[in-house]
Computed example of a mutant assay.
Amino acid sequence: MIRLPLLDPASPERFPDPRHALAEPNGLLAFGGDLSPRRLLAAYERGIFPWFNPGEPILWWSPDPRCVFDTATLTANRSLRRALAGKGWRVSVDEAFVRVMHACAAPRPGQQGTWIGAAIIEAYASLHTQGHAHSVEVWEGDALVGGVYGVAVGRLFCGESMFSACSGGSKLALVALAAWLREWGFPLLDAQVSNPHLLSLGAREMPREDFLAQVRRLSAQPFDPAHWRKVASRDAGDYL
């Protein structure tokens, strides 16, 4: 029988030590609490994130190992450059945050339902309004063809989800995000739980203990969120 700590609603910044998360299911740490901005930021600053299906209790996770991208090496490969050459796409930042979330929540082939329910969208939209959550969008004319969103804490970016409506859309969004993170001194892009697709894009697995040390270091480094608001829309070719 699994026994999990129940989070105290009156203590939004209190979490169990993520090193005590379960081995099976990998990383399950606690349940309950809420999705207030204060609690979400406290979670990300400790290497913890929420992940649950709509209608279920809020579940909090810190898996071992952790899936991460090194922003220094996350660049467009030859096949992506070839595939997107001449498409005329453009890339923007924080132009359509909620639209990206809804696109990420849309059903995908072979997938039943989504964990990005109304409560998650409302919570992260609040984080976005406060300057903590951000999105990168890929456009073909007025059509949104790809995107990625996540949460910035200090100089760590915690990716949440990405989508493609056209082949290459999510890859371009990820490459563009990494380009800005590199420029701003963000060495890691957290991808949470590894899967073959993320690993094929260049992600790697990091032991949780090492990841938590990086979280403590990077989340304590100040970063002005105004930088996100200053990013102008660019042609896709600028990132290829």
Rank of each mutant, 00 (worst) to 15 (best):
M1Q: 10
I2A: 05
I2M: 10
R3I: 12
P5V: 04
L6Q: 13
L6A: 09
L6K: 10
L7S: 13
D8Y: 05
P9K: 02
D17V: 11
P18Q: 11
H20F: 02
A21H: 11
E24G: 09
G27F: 01
L29I: 09
F31V: 13
G33R: 12
L35R: 12
P37D: 02
R39C: 08
L41C: 12
Y44I: 07
R46M: 08
I48M: 06
F49A: 07
W51D: 04
F52A: 13
F52G: 07
E56S: 15
P57R: 10
I58A: 07
W60A: 00
W60L: 03
S62V: 07
D64N: 15
V68W: 00
F69V: 09
T71Y: 05
A72I: 05
N77M: 04
L80K: 02
L80T: 06
R81G: 10
R81D: 00
R82W: 01
A83H: 12
A83L: 15
L84V: 02
L84W: 00
A85D: 10
K87S: 06
K87H: 04
G88C: 08
V91Q: 01
V91S: 01
S92Q: 04
V93G: 03
A96T: 10
F97K: 14
V98I: 12
V100L: 12
A105E: 10
A105M: 07
A106S: 10
P107Q: 04
P109G: 01
Q111G: 00
Q111L: 05
Q112R: 12
Q112V: 12
Q112F: 00
G113M: 01
I116T: 13
I116E: 08
A118R: 15
I121K: 11
A123H: 11
A123D: 14
S126Q: 15
H128N: 14
Q130N: 05
G131W: 06
S135E: 05
V136K: 10
V136E: 03
E137I: 08
V138L: 06
W139Y: 03
E140Y: 06
E140Q: 15
G141E: 07
A143S: 14
A143H: 14
V145P: 11
V145R: 07
V145K: 00
G146T: 04
G147T: 01
V153T: 15
R155K: 11
L156A: 14
C158K: 02
G159W: 03
E160T: 10
S161Y: 09
M162L: 09
M162T: 06
S164V: 01
A165C: 09
S167Q: 13
S170I: 00
K171L: 08
A176C: 02
L177A: 01
A178K: 04
A178M: 03
W180R: 15
W184F: 03
G185K: 13
G185H: 14
G185P: 14
P187G: 06
P187Q: 12
L189C: 10
D190E: 12
N195Q: 07
L198I: 07
L199G: 09
S200R: 13
G202K: 01
G202F: 04
G202C: 06
M206L: 15
P207T: 02
P207Y: 01
Q214S: 14
V215H: 00
R216I: 02
Q221S: 08
D224H: 01
P225F: 03
A226V: 08
K230M: 13
K230W: 03
V231N: 04
V231E: 05
A232F: 00
A232Y: 00
A232C: 06
R234A: 12
D235Q: 11
Y239G: 02
